[in-house]
Nucleic acid binder design. Sequence first.
RNA 1: GGUCUCAUAGUUCAAUGGAUAGAAUAGGAGUUUCCUAAACUCUAGAUCCAAGUUCGAUUCUUGGUGAGACCA
Length: 591
Amino acid sequence: MNVIEQIKASVAAAITHLYKTDISQKDILVNTTKPEFEGDYTVVLFAFVKQLKQNPEALGNSLGNYLIHQHNQLFIEFNVVKGFLNLTIHPNIWLQFLQKESNHSQYGITTTVNNKVMVEYSSPNTNKPIHLGHLRNNFLGWSIAAILEANGNEVVKTCIVNDRGIHICKSMIAWQLFANGDTPESTQTKGDNFVGSYYVKFNEAYKQEVNALIADGMQKEIAEKEAPILKATQQMLLDWEAGKPDVIELWKNMNQWVYDGFDETYKNIGTSFDKIYYESNTYLLGKDLVEKGLQKNVFYKKEDGSVWIDLTDNGLDEKIVQRRDGTSVYITQDIGLAEQRYEEYKANESIYVIGDEQNYHMKVLKLICQKLKLPGADGIYHLSYGMVELPTGKMKSREGTVVDADDIVEEMIKISKQKTEELGKVNDFTTEELNDLYRMIGLGALKFFLLRVDPKKRIIFNPEESIDFHGFTAPFIQYTHARIKSILRKNELLPLTITDAALLKLEKDLIKHLELFPAALAEAAQEHDPSKITIYIFNTAQLFNSFYAQHSIANAESEDKKQLRLHIAQLTAHVIKTGMKVLGIGVPERM
RNA sequence: GGUCUCAUAGUUCAAUGGAUAGAAUAGGAGUUUCCUAAACUCUAGAUCCAAGUUCGAUUCUUGGUGAGACCA
């Protein structure tokens, strides 16, 4: 039980004893005490002043008195300011904590599994190379999976590849028309970029054809439907669905090029999946559910034969689930896939990392699954995130105005190389060690940059101002870790023997902060928000740096103090490493 | 037309209804005979507007304004 939980439990017990009233522990608000007041933690009393019919001052005093007498192992002092009860924790608590955890490299990690979660993320489209927005998705998905794992969940990471449909056919047609048999190999181009360029070419050609038709006197709307290249694309989709061998072969080839490119990027950014689904295998799912929904009267049929669901009672619209020609719409496939995945993995929670443009869609998806009473429906959670935009506006693959993922990663690594060389601290590293370090720092800075913001907010990325390496950034934290490691290499760590309980302010602040690590991990999991971890770890590093600047570890006042500080340093390093690990960011021994 | 999201220092971000709204960066001023100055210390600077609920509102409600997304 952590310190805050102990405080809540003892306050609840004190209230029960003193006022014969039961107060739920979750109604007790405990904050860290503001620096301008005396104390470690503060109980906010206003909440139960009314219920207990006490004035805040008197309530605080009688509670405080009771606590320091009845729980004298935990509390040593108290004071009351207005409605705030400030409590000072017994120093032995901090020393005991440090003694227990300082050598525990897995501190904060819950190893017992009590829940199963599926996290879907990345879910790329095979004619769009991965750009900065996809990176946000990938980093968020990977990180939330790691955070859940650290909190005692069995996690299945999954991805649904959008590998079929009219848009894929567009790239295929453009390739047939313009490639002259070129391949990624023959042109020395990464496969996803190669295919993506034909998607752009299609749109150029399409625009030209439409303009030509308009010039011949055709109306715009008709021209947009009649352009020959579009007609050819539609025919190709029909051929694909009919399984026409040459179309299927072309489709397979082009998709393989894309997968080769994706694999390279995924490897580059450190992403992986446990199970990959392909839409070409799943797009027919969900048809049987339409029938089931009709029987259960969840769906209804209109006169023209189309099938709908009425969600007006839930504040939404009526939504079509099957067209009148019997073909299904996206949402139907998604319901089908949700059902299939539940059958396969029986995960009671299913997290979809998808952009906020799909908020409505995901709301509808969950509602329909619930109305159909599909198992796992209540566990659907949409981890919605804002778009990454450029100062000029949204990134559009179709128009080629994107920050390419491979390019930005390369750029970040280049900058970290430059800075490292300028500082010249690791000149004895081998080339391989240097390259690993550059990657760790550059990629780390990028991941941290995209993860440190509340997911639901938009990020505006200005390519002109490169991502910072100072302040609230990964390199700042990595640097702190390297400094600690340097100290630990030079000084022998001995078992911690408690002698003098007196702690300096910064020593105590740091231990107190480290004690909150498991709570920070739990909060990030609860809120599905890795930015909670970025803030926590940044504060950890900041605190350590202040401590480091003011108190010498190697030349401490006494051998006991030196060992105490070495243990604090050691645990700080563990916490930084573990915290960064669940963000997908490595920390170096030296930099 | 309807629904949803966002709005906080010059800029990028914090703040489960709680004390004097925190950081970072940019700006100003400093710190290196001593564990890595990618660091540290000090300084200045902000809640979109208007009502309401409350002992207390950046947070909740209503109505505006601005930005974005979605549904038809």
